[in-house]
Amino acid sequence: MRSEKIEGSTIRPRLATEALPIRILLILVTLIFLGLFLGLPLAAVFTQAFAAGSGPYFAALKDPNTVSAIKLTLLTAAVSVPLNVLFGLAAAWAIAKFEFWGKNLLLTLIDLPFAVSPVIAGMIFVLLLGKFSPLGGWLDAHQIKIIFAVPGIILATTFVTFPFVARELLPVMQAQGVEEEQAALVLGATGWQSFWRVTLPNIKWGLIYGVILCNARAMGEFGAVSVVSGKIMGQTNTLPLQVEAFNDDYNFVGAFAAASLLALLGLVTLVIKSFVEWRTARHEQ
């Protein structure tokens, strides 16, 4: 849909556009602005990572602390993302397919984690489950470690990525309506059969879109994880925290090597995101 509009703009009558010098000037200002704020920082991560050549770069990636940070980051995403997919499916199903009182309030509450500062997102779990809270005291007495340990990191990550899947699925499910599922049920399908065979194929691309955005944030979260992690190298440092740890140690090759992996994750996310958008737009036509 988007591409069609833009291609149309090239044959726009001259009346509704600016003079050529103004167009060139505006495009140049756009490119300079985006170059200063997006292009240069992105280029910097890779040039800095390879500043001392590829040997030190790959050595930094094989650093045991980096390897352990990569593992923890993958583990965190592997728990948080499925949890939020399950929630996203349930929330989108309830909100899109049924009418009930308080729907708008529920929608606002689902958006709430987006409005909360990452530091506060981590802090609430320290207040709830940390040593000095009633619940934390009980956990401590039973030797269950959540805060300053891996479960806390997963909890905080799940909180900050909470709305992603639900937000992306909702409009897709709403656009779908209820007729197809009703037809399946009338023809004798069970609820689960209609979900797997009718609903899921219809929302597939919306789900993929939500999952990759959720995953990118889960792997890249810094502030919230920073509060609940004890920042023990090799144990409770995720990849973004390891970037900070190396940076604080003036190990810039290590910091930028770790950062380059996360930048790559961001770029892959952008490519998949663009592909899904392109596919959805083509499908709508």
């Binding site: 703009s9 556009t17 991560v45 810094f222 952008l270």
Partner: peptide, 29 residues
């Protein structure tokens, strides 16, 4: 939206970079 120029599509995709790039990476870069 209104002009067409070489690389427009790539730049359009790149605008979302701050959404996709972890904040720690943005800060250090």
């Amino acid at each position: 939206t209104r002009y067409s120029f070489p690389g427009r599509r790539v730049i359009d995709g790149l605008v979302d970079l701050p959404f996709a790039l972890p904040t720690a990476v943005a800060g250090i870069c």
